[in-house]
Amino acid sequence: MTVRHDDVTVEWFGYATVRLETADGFVAYIDPGRYGVLTGEWEPDSPDAAHPDPVDYHAADGDAVFVTHDHHYDSDGIERVAGEDATVVVYEGVDADAIGRDVTPPSELPYEVVRIGEEDHLTVGDCDAWSIPAYNEENGPHTGDDGEPFHPKGFGIGYLLSLNGSTVFWPGDTDALSGHRALDVDVFLPPIGGSFTMDRREAAALAADLDPALVVPIHYGTFAALETDSAAFAEDVENRGITVALDED
């Protein structure tokens, strides 16, 4: 399923993998890969999990690829989506040695790789990109049994992307933060799985504050800890007068 807002199309492959394309043919990917969503190997913990079907995907058509943090860094996923002349934008905090999976370090990828800070701006082709802090608040609802945030401040980021005059916001793995509410957002891609990020209710409240033209929820249903009621989320947001598209197969 492909969702459209003005001159930008949005396609969710599962987990946090999103493809964006402008009417002019500029293609950007966000957090590609992991859990078999691009290799065709993803299998839901629940047969009723709301999620796109996994695909063996190797389009290699991306002009830009954006990575938010260690949990979403997948070098195989990047190579499946990045075009030969792609620019890969990776948060400066991503550390291949600390990931604990078999990944190629960003510096060894066969593309132009740009590292971005926690609150930076850069331009890649037809895309302006701003990095936005992403984290779980201490003593908040998304912490481990030891009380420590799953995503401490400085561990990752989100992205606000400007494409053909439309702004697309992927907040990353984060709580709903006060700074988010000041953003000018046309297309909102909230994580709604809860556990490690804002849940569907918190995401719906943030959507109401942002008042985007379109909401496409992602980062849910991939495994048990991310299962949620996406239909209830959509109803909640639509009752606030905001359009929602569930990109599910």
Rank of each mutant, 00 (worst) to 15 (best):
E84S: 14
L161M: 13
T104S: 05
D97N: 14
D186K: 09
D128T: 11
V81E: 07
Y91D: 02
Y135W: 08
A129C: 03
A86K: 11
A96F: 12
L183T: 12
R80K: 04
L161W: 10
L189G: 03
Y159N: 07
V81Q: 02
K153D: 10
I192R: 05
L109H: 00
T87A: 12
P106F: 07
G147M: 05
D76A: 14
A129T: 05
E148W: 10
W170G: 04
G172Q: 01
E79F: 13
L163H: 04
V103Y: 13
P110D: 12
V187I: 11
D95S: 10
G140A: 05
D145R: 15
L189A: 05
D146L: 00
P110S: 13
H142N: 15
I116V: 15
H142G: 12
V103H: 11
D74L: 03
D175N: 07
P190R: 05
D85M: 01
E118W: 00
T167L: 11
D76N: 14
E108W: 10
P152N: 06
L122F: 09
T167A: 00
T167C: 02
Y111H: 11
A96G: 01
A98Q: 14
D173L: 14
V89K: 02
L183V: 09
P149V: 08
V168I: 13
G165R: 02
L109P: 00
A134E: 01
E84L: 09
V88T: 03
E138M: 08
A176P: 10
G154Q: 04
D97S: 15
V168L: 11
I157P: 02
Y135N: 04
G100D: 05
A96W: 08
E137Y: 08
S75H: 04
D184K: 14
D145S: 14
G179T: 10
E92P: 12
V185M: 08
T87M: 06
E137F: 08
R80A: 02
A176V: 10
H180D: 08
S131T: 11
G172I: 00
V103P: 11
L122M: 07
R115V: 10
H121R: 15
I99A: 03
G154R: 03
T87S: 07
T87F: 05
S75I: 00
D184E: 15
Y159P: 03
D145C: 05
H142E: 11
D126V: 07
D97Y: 14
R115C: 06
I157G: 01
D120S: 15
L109D: 01
E119N: 09
P152F: 03
N139Q: 15
P141M: 04
F169M: 01
G172F: 00
D145E: 15
D74E: 11
C127H: 11
I157A: 04
H180E: 00
A182I: 09
